[in-house]
Amino acid sequence: MGLADQEWFAALYQSCYRRLVLATYALTNDLGEAEEITQEAFALAYGRMARVAAADQPEAWIRTVAVNLARRRGRRRAMLDRLLRRDHPEVLAPAGSDERLDVHRAIRALRSEQRAVVVLHYLADLPVDEVASLLDIPIGTVKSRLSRARAALAAALGTPAEVDHA
């Protein structure tokens, strides 16, 4: 692995780290865990740099790894919670303006399926077809979940729902 490979990988990391954290946050609802999963996905990608570099979309390759890691952790946590019969502690909202906190709380309150599509589509800026591919659901399901999520967010925030043809 030469210097050029390391520079390419560093540029990849810089260009897509934030989007990948948002993608995993959509699934975990925990920023710290999302950052940890994203780091793990990059570590795996670094070990398979030749494969990642050969991929048509290196970011998509790493995002798929990160989503799979997040799902695996979620299944393990769910199993542990069932075994221990406990609930997850409430995650604290990040500091910011009242409006941002309200939006963050409203997004956190969405059902996990709706939260995932909202964060991936609107915050990670992925097109509907990529969200569908990433979550392994039909495009129509993504659109339906986005529509229901927008309605739920509008109700939670006391604003009229906008029509969006994603």
Rank of each mutant, 00 (worst) to 15 (best):
M1G: 15
M1T: 15
L3H: 14
D5I: 02
Q6W: 08
Q6E: 13
Q6L: 11
E7L: 15
A10R: 15
A11Q: 15
L12F: 04
Q14S: 12
R18C: 07
R19N: 10
R19A: 07
R19M: 05
L20N: 04
V21Q: 01
V21P: 03
L22H: 15
L22Q: 14
L22M: 14
L22D: 12
A26D: 04
L27M: 09
N29P: 06
L31F: 08
E33D: 04
A34H: 00
E36Q: 13
Q39S: 09
F42Y: 02
F42P: 01
F42N: 00
G47Q: 09
G47S: 05
R48C: 05
M49F: 08
A50H: 08
A50V: 13
R51M: 09
R51G: 06
V52A: 07
A55Q: 07
A55I: 09
D56T: 14
Q57K: 14
P58K: 02
E59W: 07
E59H: 07
I62Q: 02
R63V: 14
V65W: 08
A66W: 08
A66K: 11
A66V: 10
N68S: 12
N68Y: 06
R72P: 06
R72E: 05
R73A: 03
R73L: 08
G74T: 10
G74E: 09
G74N: 08
R76P: 02
R82H: 05
L83I: 14
L83N: 07
L83S: 11
L84A: 09
R85Y: 06
R86D: 00
P89G: 05
V91H: 04
V91G: 01
A93M: 03
P94R: 03
A95K: 08
A95L: 07
A95I: 07
A95Y: 05
D98W: 10
D98H: 09
R100G: 11
L101V: 15
D102V: 11
V103W: 09
V103T: 13
H104K: 13
A109P: 09
L110E: 02
S112V: 12
E113Q: 11
E113Y: 01
Q114D: 10
R115A: 03
R115H: 01
V117P: 04
V118G: 08
V118L: 06
V119L: 07
H121P: 08
Y122M: 12
Y122D: 11
L123M: 10
A124G: 01
L126V: 01
P127H: 02
E130C: 08
E130S: 11
A132R: 04
A132L: 00
S133D: 14
S133Q: 12
L134A: 13
L134G: 14
L134F: 11
L134E: 13
P138R: 02
P138E: 01
K143V: 13
R145T: 07
R145P: 09
L146Y: 03
L146R: 02
L146M: 00
R148S: 05
R148M: 06
A149F: 02
R150Y: 00
A151S: 09
A152C: 04
A155K: 13
A155F: 02
A155D: 09
A156Q: 09
A156K: 07
L157Q: 00
L157S: 00
T159V: 15
A161S: 14
E162H: 10
E162Q: 14
D164F: 11
D164K: 14
D164S: 11
D164E: 12
D164N: 12
A166R: 15
